[in-house]
């Protein structure tokens, strides 16, 4: 089961990071970044299958590809922004982390605009 590998790896790397963090915090951050990347790449196969499954379901229930694509984009943007913001916060830079999250919110809103417009149009049609 991958979860045991992941938890084992996480614990070992946390111990290493704590050792290195006393003397050289800048190296410890890079170690945690690499761990995040490796754990994500381990989960990639599962994420891929979930994404393709959602696409098939969307096709079958003829939800327009625009909405599904927007949802996928927003999930991707949110994940990368969370990844960066969390690492900045670990390093003690809360200000930088909140800037990253602010930018991510703006990007998500911009991505969601087509969907909002579509919903608004359909609402206007309902009102006589």
């Amino acid at each position: 089961m991958e979860i045991m590998q992941i938890v084992g790896l996480g614990l070992v790397v946390t111990v290493l990071i704590v050792i290195i963090k006393q003397q050289r915090p800048e190296l410890a951050i890079q170690l945690s970044v690499v761990t995040g990347v490796i754990i994500f790449s381990m989960m990639l196969g599962k994420i891929n299958s979930v994404v393709t499954l959602m696409k098939d379901l969307a096709q079958r229930s003829n939800v327009s590809v625009l909405y599904m694509g927007t949802i996928m984009k927003i999930i991707g943007v949110a994940y990368i922004a969370e990844f960066g913001a969390q690492i900045c916060r670990d390093a003690g830079e809360g200000a930088v982390a909140s800037k990253i999250e602010f930018a991510a919110k703006v990007i998500v809103i911009v991505l969601a605009i087509p969907v909002i417009v579509a919903v608004f149009d359909s609402l206007l049609k309902l009102i006589p």
Binding site: V33, V34, V37, I38, F40, S41, L44, I47, N48, V51, G69, M72, K73, I75, G76, V77, Y79, I80, F83
Partner: peptide, 16 residues
Amino acid sequence: PKIAGLFETVRSVFQI
């Protein structure tokens, strides 16, 4: 390079 690889995979998986 690892971080670049992560961003590239996320881009390809979520079609950003």
